[in-house]
Amino acid sequence: MTQVPILDIRNLKVDFATRDGMVHALESVSFQLVRGETMGLVGESGSGKSVSAYAVMRLLGSSAHVTADRMVCGGVDLRSASDAEVASLRGKRMTMIFQNARAALNPIRSIGDQIVDVLRAHRAMPKREAHEAAIMALAEVRIPDPKRRYHAYPFELSGGMCQRVMIALAFASEPELLIADEPTTGLDVTTQAVIMDLIREKSSQRQMSTILITHDLTLAAEYCDRFAVMHAGHIVEQGTTTDIFQRATHPYTGLLMQATPHGATTLSELAAIPGSLPDLRRELPPCRFVHRCPQSTPACAAPLPRVKLDASHEVACHMPWRESE
């Protein structure tokens, strides 16, 4: 079942020039995504999840130095494409749901008009048709009374509603790749469930590929086919959801799971992850987890290996870990 991946990222490296020196935000990040697949990108804040997404969307500012061996979306090389070419990809073939929906929406345009803008720009729809389609799009994301809400402004809507508008916007252009950056952070569990179901339904209807960025392992487990765990700008482990959940191999993945309240019955079953993220401005050791890792050895100072455990499961560790059970 070898498909041409819709997104192919190899050895992505992002550095930011700051007054305090270079911040090594991402290093040797590689992943592929095939059509219809949902991949989770999980990790603590500051691990590089959003930077990866922004790099793919080519939304990073001029202080970012982006290099990669390969960076292809839908046959277009994102490294050499002109800004105009990327702009025509964005919104149409790849689109993004941003973290804070209320801040990402235009505060002075009605939500309906914002959807019409997308439809007219990317699908060249005539005005009247676009108006109808926008109402349909709002109904599709279960916004009650879409005809009336067409004229609403973002400040008149609740957080959950704004999130749904973001999703309607993202889907309006019928993208092949959706990057959802913490689409449900700050929402109630009930709203979260409705929104995640909606994303899942849309992905399977349209064979859309999705990258779900989240810090919630259990959420990723429920909605993703595969996931990549990030720590301090590295992908430390990636594999199918079963690979990760039942055969977690990187110490960080294992510790992250022991810190997640889901499934535990007492507080003492949870374990904290020692230390904190390394300062990405400093000279970093090959393994960026080495100072927090309970089982680091002198061998960890060697260049980081990428161990393939099987076709789908890969880990970047010298001392792959097995939970003692």
Binding site: R142, T190, A193, L219
Partner: peptide, 21 residues
């Protein structure tokens, strides 16, 4: 029940999804 079934990973529970506001 709806609140509980909306927790991610509550797979063993029958799903109850609340529509509307």
């Amino acid at each position: 029940k709806a609140l509980l079934s909306a927790i991610p990973g509550a797979a063993e529970m029958e799903r109850v999804r609340l529509d509307g506001e």
